[in-house]
Simulated assay, not measured.
Amino acid sequence: MKTVQLKREVNSGFKFITEKQTLKSPLVLVFGSRYLLEDESVYQEIKNYFPDGHIVFGSTSGNITSESVDDESIVVTAIEFENSSFIIKTTNVLNDNQESLNSTEVGKELIKQLPAQNLKHVFIISDGSFINGSQLAIGMNSASDQKLIVTGALCGDAARFEKTLSSYNEAPKEGEIIAIGLYGDTLEISFATHGGWTPFGPERLVTKSDANILYEIDGQPALNLYKKYLGEKSKELPGAALLYPLNVKSKDDDKSIVRTILNINEEDNSMILAGDILEGSQVQLMMTNVDSIVNAAEIGAERALSERKKAPELALLVSCIGRKLVLDQRVEEEVEEVMEVIGNKTLVSGFYSYGEIAPFEDETNCQLHNQTMAITLISE
């Protein structure tokens, strides 16, 4: 595997942050600020660097490299696979009327586009505005009978939640979902997720919900109850909700999952979550601190590395925007902890997202996570 990485900041051109070298038909991952990706010249500029490259764009809530975490930048990571291969397929969750299509069917049909023979892993870069991430994951699992490992992320837009952009071999646009299928027996790919958030307060019952909209908890309007717990911080909603997600445990599953509250509806006292929440689920508020988040990143890296035969050459890190808001000025510490574990010879690329896609430990079916650090380690 050969890799090259470039970075462009506001009012500057692209600069190599690794040694410059020529790559043959590379996979080119472009993660960047939505505002910078809206520049119509960006696609052609990157195409000039990699004329035969397969260029995948994704807007972010912050870019991750081994050097730094940047808000207003574009990071380009180009990968030449020497002994393996990749195939890229796309779909769009928006139809011509700009209305969202069924996210489950979108996920199922996207994975079915990828040839199944020798398919080792799929990495997803998804729209983060219109897609229902939970249903996307269900659809992708159903396409492979839950036997295919899928990791990836929903794109971000800082903490604005206005729109996200993504694309393959064209200028970034809304609604696009990209599946990168990785093929070959020489590939070694491992993954892990870990959060570091702690539930507090009583467990309560979800008594009314619809997909990712939470209407009632214990028979009471969900937003009213949430505001009661937040106290003075409720004046800072919906932004404050990123700091107090929900721990959700379904009656049909023995594992809990974290759900971020993306927005609120004062008219019907409901909350819009980043993923589905089923009626009958048990929910608790969650909280964390900087040290817990940083320690969780270290634990995740150790899990991802634990059973590998070869040192990773590439680390794709996806962390949640909510973690970034908690970490604030210490945001680079969680990346530093991962690098301490995996070693400084591994090229690091990634971003802060609106949702992380990965299976639970010891499982194969992927899930939509919030408030986690999802780590994918790749080598040939």
Rank of each mutant, 00 (worst) to 15 (best):
G280D: 01
G239F: 04
L182G: 03
A192L: 06
Q282Y: 09
G195K: 09
N289A: 04
H194N: 15
L262R: 03
D268Y: 03
N289I: 05
Y215P: 02
S166P: 13
L246D: 08
P172W: 00
I213G: 01
I178P: 10
E279L: 00
P172G: 05
L214T: 08
I213Q: 11
A179Y: 03
Q282H: 11
L187V: 06
L187G: 09
G201D: 08
I213P: 09
G181M: 03
L273H: 12
K228M: 11
Y183T: 13
N269R: 11
K235Q: 15
T186F: 12
L223R: 01
D268F: 07
R204M: 15
P202A: 04
L273G: 09
N247G: 02
D268T: 12
S190H: 06
K163S: 13
E203L: 02
Y215T: 04
A211F: 12
T193I: 15
T288G: 08
N247H: 14
T288F: 05
D210A: 12
K235G: 01
E162A: 12
E266Q: 14
D185T: 15
G239M: 11
F161T: 01
F191W: 11
Y226C: 03
L165D: 01
Y226L: 08
D268V: 11
F200K: 10
E266T: 11
L225F: 05
D253T: 04
T186N: 14
I264M: 07
E216N: 11
H194G: 01
S256T: 14
L230C: 08
V290I: 15
K235N: 13
G201V: 13
Y229A: 15
L246N: 05
M287H: 10
W197C: 02
S256C: 12
N289S: 12
